[in-house]
Design a protein around this nucleic acid. Structure first.
Lengths: 208, 208
DNA sequence: ATGAAAAGCGAATCATCGCTCATATTCTGT
DNA sequence: ACAGAATATGAGCGATGATTCGCTTTTCAT
């Protein structure tokens, strides 16, 4: 199957060597992004760091943008894996416990490679393909709304959608800022205090 | 005062023609950023849109970065002008009123050129000089903490700094997301509902 | 073992863009 | 009216960096 001018999307890796190459590229991109910053992350430099040639890079990623997108996607997958692992347990909990655990897991999620998270949030311009990347995942939003629906009678909320928006946005912002911009102030005591405060904030809101 | 090889920082504009040029450049940059996006905003294109030559651009802005910084600074000034105007009145209000007015003014602030606000928040990489640009102004944070201190006896907060962090971060995130990502859902009724919810959230938190 | 497909290579191409500089025009004080 | 300072011009330099392509090496199925 010869590919003549397949300029748009490159083909999948099928042999295991090539899968290793793809992994190395994504890994190297993440490393360069963190250590050198977005504007130093040229495709040639990335290929070199990955120990492969630029040509190989373009075998699997049609554009630099798509490579960066792959890094972001992988990072989001890792975060969602962390979250999903705890989520089933959380959803069975009563409101007070659930919210507190949710805040805790949100902090945990932001501590999965926080350096990369910061680069993604602050240095990578959302242009072109990256434009549609949601800052916080829609999945969280939907799941949270489902939980609210289940506990509706215990709660003082009329508009579930609005309440979900408020809660998810708030938890995301608080944990994001705490972990990524105040990590020194937030070592141990303070972080527990933050969990307390954030939980009180949300629970107070939900239970009136 | 001849300038021989003043490569680093360019001189100030003193005559009114040059001040007009500077204004046109900043204005054109903002326009291009909004209409074409960050990656299309080359210095040549900006100069053309401003109706001046690239050379003139570099008379006043040593780097492209500094020009973008000027745009951001101007935008932040405009926002802070809006906020400061209402702020003195707000600080005299009792807590319930004050918070509600604060949320309202935060929305208003985000409605000052929201398109530009979005480009600044999402498309411009915080690299180099732009790195130190705070997402939300430190000024808000300080002022809010002062207000909390004044009303400390009415409130159920021990750590003023933490409480300020929580409130300012939350209000900023809610209004930012509402205005910039849900503007259609947020036309008239919904927006009033959001003010209600956000106010209830914060007031409940502060007053226990 | 062998031929074809898959994977890898990297020098070279090509376009973009930030920025400079030699020159031209306009302003301002006298 | 004139000189010098301030301002404006824009072709082009130089660097960077994304992407390509002709070729080699490795893998796999038979």
């Amino acid at each position: 199957m010869a590919r003549k001018s397949l300029t748009k999307p490159r083909k999948m890796a099928s042999q295991k060597r090539s899968r290793a190459t793809v992994d190395a590229l994504v890994e190297a991109t993440a490393r360069i992004l963190v250590k050198e910053g977005f504007d130093k992350a040229s495709t040639n430099r990335i290929a070199e760091a990955a120990g492969v040639s630029v040509g190989s890079l373009y075998q699997y990623f049609p554009t630099k943008e798509s490579l960066v997108a792959a890094v972001i996607e992988r990072h989001q997958q890792e975060i969602m894996q962390t979250v999903r692992g705890e989520l089933t347990g959380i959803l069975a909990q009563p409101v007070e416990q659930a919210i507190r655990m949710l805040v805790t897991v949100a902090i945990k999620a932001h501590r999965v490679d926080p350096k990369l998270h910061r680069v993604v949030a602050e240095q990578i311009p959302r242009v072109g393909e990256l434009e549609k990347l949601a800052t916080f995942n829609r999945e969280n939003y939907t799941l949270f709304m489902a939980y609210l629906a289940q506990h509706r009678d215990e709660l003082r909320v009329e508009d579930l959608e609005l309440a979900s928006f408020v809660c998810v946005t708030t938890i995301e912002a608080l944990t994001h800022n705490a972990v990524l911009h105040h990590s020194k102030m937030m070592s141990d005591e303070k972080m527990r205090a933050l969990v307390d405060e954030a939980s009180r904030l949300i629970i107070g809101y939900l239970k009136g």
